[in-house]
Simulated scan of single mutants.
Amino acid sequence: MSSVGPADTILSHHSPDGRFDNPWDTWKETGLWGVLKWQIDRRAKNVPQGGWLLKSRTPTSKDFIDEFPLHQLDSATLSDAGGDFITAVWMGHASVLVKMEGITFLTDPVFSQRCSPVQWAGPKRFVPAPRLDKSILPSLDFVIISHNHYDHLDYGTVVQLHKQYGNDLTWYVPLGLQKWFHRCKITNVKELDWWQSVQHCGGPVTVTMTPAQHWSSRTGTDRRHTLWGGYAVLGEKLRFWFAGDTGYCPVFKEIGRRLGPFDLSAIPIGAYKPRDFMKPQHINPQEAVQIHQDVRSMQSIGIHCCTFCLTDEALDEPPQLLVREAAAAKLSHGSFVTLQHGACLKTAGGLNRNEPALLGTP
Rank of each mutant, 00 (worst) to 15 (best):
142 F>D: 00
8 D>M: 14
13 H>L: 06
141 D>M: 03
120 W>C: 09
26 T>E: 15
231 Y>G: 00
187 T>I: 13
37 K>S: 07
180 W>A: 09
27 W>S: 11
267 I>Y: 06
64 F>P: 03
159 V>S: 10
350 G>I: 06
127 V>W: 09
39 Q>H: 13
285 P>F: 02
331 L>V: 08
96 V>F: 04
191 E>L: 07
283 I>Y: 05
27 W>I: 06
172 Y>P: 05
65 I>Y: 14
251 V>Q: 13
191 E>R: 03
218 R>Y: 02
6 P>Y: 10
262 F>P: 07
13 H>Y: 15
248 Y>F: 08
221 T>L: 11
247 G>C: 12
276 D>W: 15
115 C>H: 04
362 P>V: 11
119 Q>A: 10
93 H>D: 14
320 Q>F: 01
177 L>E: 15
268 P>Q: 10
111 F>S: 12
351 L>R: 13
344 C>V: 09
314 A>R: 02
259 L>R: 07
215 W>R: 04
69 P>Q: 00
52 W>K: 05
274 P>Q: 10
124 K>S: 09
354 N>H: 06
42 R>P: 01
209 M>F: 03
153 L>V: 02
283 I>H: 02
89 V>K: 00
83 G>M: 01
284 N>C: 07
274 P>I: 09
270 G>Y: 01
303 I>T: 13
356 P>V: 09
293 Q>I: 09
60 T>M: 04
108 D>E: 11
68 F>V: 14
74 D>K: 05
196 Q>N: 08
210 T>E: 04
332 S>H: 07
349 G>K: 03
70 L>N: 00
230 G>V: 01
53 L>M: 10
307 T>S: 13
105 F>T: 04
290 Q>S: 12
358 L>D: 02
127 V>T: 15
31 G>A: 11
224 R>G: 01
195 W>H: 06
69 P>L: 01
174 P>Q: 10
82 G>H: 04
54 L>Y: 10
283 I>M: 12
99 K>I: 04
7 A>G: 15
59 P>H: 09
217 S>C: 12
345 L>G: 01
28 K>T: 11
355 E>S: 11
33 W>I: 14
234 L>G: 00
360 G>C: 00
204 P>L: 08
33 W>P: 02
220 G>A: 00
290 Q>H: 14
54 L>H: 06
12 S>N: 04
12 S>Q: 02
351 L>A: 12
339 L>H: 07
341 H>F: 15
255 I>C: 11
287 E>T: 06
54 L>E: 15
302 G>N: 01
73 L>M: 10
6 P>R: 11
114 R>S: 03
361 T>C: 09
262 F>L: 03
3 S>R: 13
221 T>G: 06
253 K>R: 13
162 H>A: 12
34 G>E: 06
184 C>E: 13
26 T>Y: 02
62 K>G: 01
48 P>D: 07
88 A>H: 05
317 E>M: 11
325 E>V: 05
225 H>I: 05
322 L>G: 02
18 G>E: 07
